[in-house]
Computed example of a mutant assay.
Amino acid sequence: MKIGIGLPTSLAGTAGEDVVGWAVRAEEAGFSTLGTIDRLLHTSWEPLTTLAAAAAVTGRIGLATSILISPLRSNTALLAKQAATVDRLSGGRLTLGLAVGSRPDDFEAGQVEKTGRGARTGTQVTELRRHWADAQAGREPSVGPAPVRRNGPELILGGHSPAALRRAARLGDGWIGGGTGPVMFAQGAQSLRELWAEEGREGSPRLVALAYFALGEDATKHTEGYLRSYYRDAGPFVEHILRGAADSVGKLRGIVGKYTEAGCDELLLMPCSRDLDQVTAAAAVLGLLG
């Protein structure tokens, strides 16, 4: 299983130099991917803009929106252009993770209708691929630039509902489970594999997951503070998220082991502290530093 790490762009007080330094150190430490999460009404940074900056200071590490709330980007042609631009900047390193979003306040602030967002996301996936194919074929007029990767960036779709899993099996290159823990991930992954086969898809879907972490003396303080803020409107679900957060060396190793057993292809460790030493500490615990 590959191990990636999230950028600290949803943590209050993060500066540009923090993000650039984090990206450089994560690549040096041997992580597979840099991830970003997405909210509108939060201090979190815009994911594709952030990944463009990360692309400029790295040369190997993957870049992933994990995830991007695609219905909030109602201009799909513009989204296709933005994603293709990051893909070109990074030499084809972009994975575009998409999901429908759930927070009503994000949709209210974005003046986007929340109802019907699942169907609209499915349509967006089809339109994104059409725009990228037209650009790569050199058709005129088309929305450019042409992505580097054949058929465009890898598209990983999120969500745990039956409709979301079916959409991922039908339209995606794989599925990304949120930070809900390895048990729920394993259940979703098994459903996704079965639906993938029902859809007559060849090969195997790529399976990705998130896990929150912080290490060091104040690790529990950081995980409590950040996750209670980010999931402040999630009700009792925040307690489930907190129980699954890795706030010690032992818990981090245990969580990685459980996701490996669940058949996860790549686990993205999302930080609850913006201290740059978190990158090196996690890499050392997981043996990524060689």
Rank of each mutant, 00 (worst) to 15 (best):
K81F: 01
T121P: 00
T121W: 00
L79D: 10
A55W: 00
H42E: 09
Q82T: 14
A133F: 01
A135T: 10
L41C: 11
L72E: 13
Q111M: 14
A135K: 08
R117A: 10
R129H: 09
R130Y: 04
L41H: 01
G97R: 14
R139N: 09
A80R: 11
V112H: 12
I67S: 10
G152I: 06
A55E: 06
V57G: 00
A84H: 12
V125I: 10
T95F: 05
I37T: 15
L34F: 02
T85C: 10
A56G: 02
L98I: 13
V143C: 14
P71S: 15
A135Y: 03
V112W: 01
E154D: 08
D105N: 12
R39Q: 13
L48Q: 00
P141W: 15
R129Q: 13
H131L: 09
L89F: 10
S102P: 05
D134S: 05
A56Y: 06
S74F: 11
W132G: 02
P104G: 12
G91S: 07
A99P: 04
R103Y: 11
G91A: 13
L79E: 13
H131K: 03
D87Q: 11
R39A: 14
P104E: 04
R129C: 12
L94A: 14
R93L: 03
G152F: 07
F107W: 10
R60T: 11
R149L: 15
I37G: 07
G118I: 05
S90E: 08
T58A: 07
E127S: 01
R130F: 03
A64Q: 10
V57Q: 08
A135E: 02
T33P: 00
D38K: 09
A137N: 13
L96Q: 04
A29I: 01
R150S: 12
